[in-house]
Amino acid sequence: MEFTALFLAITITMLVAWRGPRPLALSLFAVVLIACVATFMHHATDTLKLSF
């Protein structure tokens, strides 16, 4: 679900970057990037079975 929302948010950000105001595009980018990092941190809780 969160990935679907992120793809939608990036599509909207792209459209704003191409046709909308620049400050809004930059703000949307910042929000999406933070959401991406938060999603990664949420999914990065599995144990890493390293070989060294």
Partner: peptide, 15 residues
Amino acid sequence: LQRIMFALLAIGPIL
């Protein structure tokens, strides 16, 4: 998430 980051990478070139 990697696909998402590739898509996000495209915002800079568009601007």
